[in-house]
Simulated scan of single mutants.
Amino acid sequence: MSRGYNFAAGPAAVPEAVLRQAQAELLDWGQARASVMEISHRGKLFAELAAESECDLRSLLDIPGNYKVLFLQGGATQHFAQIPMNFARRDRIADYVVTGHWGEKAVREAWTLADVRIAANSDASRHTAIPARDTWTLHADAAYVHYTPNETIHGVEFQHVPDVGNVPLVADMSSDILSRPLDVRKFGLIYAGAQKNIGASGLVVMIVREDLLERCPKDLPKIFNYAEHAANDSMLNTPNTFGWYLASLVFKWLLGEGGLVAIGERNRAKAEHLYAGIDGSGGFYRNPVEPASRSWMNVPFTLFDEELNALFLKESEAAGLLALKGHKAVGGMRASLYNAVTLEAVHALADFMRDFAKRYG
Rank of each mutant, 00 (worst) to 15 (best):
D305A: 13
S293P: 11
A132L: 10
G165N: 10
G264L: 02
A32I: 15
A143I: 15
N339I: 00
L138S: 08
V116G: 05
W244N: 07
Y191Q: 01
A230G: 06
F71N: 10
Y338D: 08
S234G: 01
A110I: 11
A271N: 03
R354S: 05
A200F: 13
V289W: 01
W244K: 03
A348L: 11
R266V: 00
Y147V: 06
M37L: 15
N166L: 06
R294F: 02
N232L: 13
D141I: 07
L321M: 08
T135M: 12
L60N: 06
N287I: 03
F71E: 11
A345D: 09
E344P: 08
Y245G: 10
R42M: 13
R126I: 00
G243R: 03
A32P: 15
R20S: 05
R359S: 12
R89L: 05
A129I: 07
W102P: 00
M173A: 00
Q82K: 14
H139M: 05
L260W: 07
L203F: 08
Q82T: 10
E157A: 02
Q195N: 12
N232Y: 12
H327M: 04
N197Y: 00
A269E: 12
R89H: 05
G280W: 13
L203Q: 01
H139W: 06
I83L: 13
V107M: 04
A142Y: 05
L57W: 03
V261C: 09
R42K: 14
E257W: 01
A192M: 10
A124C: 03
A200I: 08
S295K: 08
F187W: 01
M353E: 05
D141V: 08
E210F: 07
F46I: 15
D355F: 01
S122D: 02
A120E: 01
